[in-house]
Amino acid sequence: MLKLEDVLITQGDFRMQADFTLEVGRKYAVIGPSGAGKSTLLGALCGFVPLAAGRMYWEERDISNAAPNARPMTMLFQDNNLFPHLSVLQNVGLGLRPDLRLTAQERETVENALSRVDLSNFATAKPGTLSGGQQSRVALARVLVQARPLVLLDEPFAALGPALRNEMLDVVRDTVAQTGAAMVMVTHAPEDVRRIADEVIFVEGGRAHAPRPAAALMDDPPPELRAYLG
């Protein structure tokens, strides 16, 4: 489990507090108004934004100052999740070997992951030749081979149409189910929350609130969440 202890994140005038615990194998949605700091929260979890105060623990280990790739997590960004000059196979392989020197066994792992996202025939293709949905699936195949206990998603499907986005959410759900990972996903859409999330982290007013069960929260939102959902 990931534990945030009296965490304070500051960026210029922006301040956000967080104090909660994320459990393995659960799926969390992060929702809140624009500019409330949803992406910043994920950046802090992942090590891109330094903590101004407080500590962060994975199991018993203090990871407050660990480098992004030394943390037990991986992240999909809003864009630039793939290197356009590398093949699909290489892009996924980077999840195992950051120097691209794959052993035969690692290569097989990558090919398995590609077949699980239905991209077996695209191993040698460059991302630029793929559709938006296929590109998202390549990134998800990399998440599969990385097999980190925590997967962070910063609206990676925002540019996709509704049908494709739902399809991707299902692939995500299968992916984290296969690796047993916890998932934290930033989203704008209440229907995404209902589709995939077990719990909701509501970010608003300089605070990332502790996770609450999704269904109950969405059915009976507190006043500030009601104001956001409209």
Partner: peptide
Amino acid sequence: AQYERLSAILGISGWRLWRVVLLPRLR
């Protein structure tokens, strides 16, 4: 700007960053 975070999360740094990302991007 585009690939710094992706490289960081994948642990691509130092000489590898040049070989895998920067040199091919700037070819």
